[in-house]
Nucleic acid binder design. Sequence first.
DNA 1: TCTGGGGTCCTAGGACCC
DNA 2: TCTGGGGTCCTAGGACCC
Length: 411
Amino acid sequence: MRSKTYFHLDMDAFFVSVEELFDPSLKGKPVIVGGRANERGVVSAASYPARKFGVHSAMPLRTAYKLCPQALFVDGHPERYREYSHKVYAVLQSFSPLVEMASIDEAYLDMTGTERLYGAPLRAAHLLHQRIRTETLLNCSIGIATSRLVAKITSDQAKPNGVLWVIPGQEASFLAPLDVRKVPGIGKVTEKQLHSLGIRKVGDLANLDEAFLAQRFGKWGLAMAGKSRGLDAGGWFDTDIGENSAPKSISHEHTFGEDTADLSKLEATLARLSEMVGRRLREHNLHARTIQLKLRYSDFSTITRAHSLGRATQLDTEVFDEARQLFRRNWNAGAAVRLLGVHVSGFSANTGQMDLLAEEHHRRWEQALAAADKMREKFGESAVSLAASMRGKFRERTHENPVGLPGKRPK
DNA sequence: TCTGGGGTCCTAGGACCC
DNA sequence: TCTGGGGTCCTAGGACCC
């Protein structure tokens, strides 16, 4: 069987690079995207000059400030990143039909059998690299290999702004000297466990007996054995490119600027989060059966509590009612809360059966909420807010008017 | 170090059913 | 009633990714 050819394309310092397009004065400076230096939060992205000081993504902003006080701290702009992600995707699609965005700033391409069109893999990759640069004004790095896994590791080795090809047959020797942490799926915890066994390099992993790994790590051990040899063994890597699946869950969460035990503030936040979740459900035309609350206290201890409905919903009010019930039943009352989250899953295309009356009731609410969604699109987030209307109106809620929306129905 | 927000996948126990 | 085995659903938590 002929081997496959995969590209993994990864944008360089994506969020920072996009911000630099909007504000060229940032170029060449230590830039940190994610928020103000003294805010609660973490670094979303750091420019290469900032990385020289030890700043990296996921690091607390306050820590980043200590390491690099002269850095320019800027807020993130998700709409800008989505816009540029779409631009990247458009270039990729014009290049190959087998494309899959793996996240906002990276993609896989199945380039098997495209030699007649583009020539050898390295030549094709350089062509793509140039086209991305021309069309988006952004730098990227491209890894080429016979598996998605190795292509991903390769693009990381190619950074910044590089192209790298692992010749078929050379996968294991390419991987062998790399730290186990370079393998996607091996994080902090697994790395530590492997280190305690004296396994530090991918080559050490490849030399181990599979049975030992299976016994020690179960299914995941077998997958690691395959990965250490460069195979798309098990899990997400083992799927075909192109079938971009529908979302499996939708969630929104909020960390308070300061922890709070104020019930009305907490429930207003739950209402706002439920609203955001409901809107996304309707955008994707999905109905969810399982509603989950996430609750994090000051000491960072975190619980999740879920409940599955008899019938799936896409209504803010039903999501909110469930989330609030879960909250009231599980909140250690008086304890200050750091974070609240609302998460829905168990999607189905329709809601299952309903009697005619309930059907009509729901249809009206769905119409009203869809109209509200449109108004938000037109006039912005603050135009219509369940959360705002909730604040003074908790006690006035009735069955017919379950969220205290104004009486006038949008046309 | 004082720890965001949006996801995916996996494990494990208990309920419930055959 | 000292008792099996498999399948599926539900729930809680955790590792990991960008």
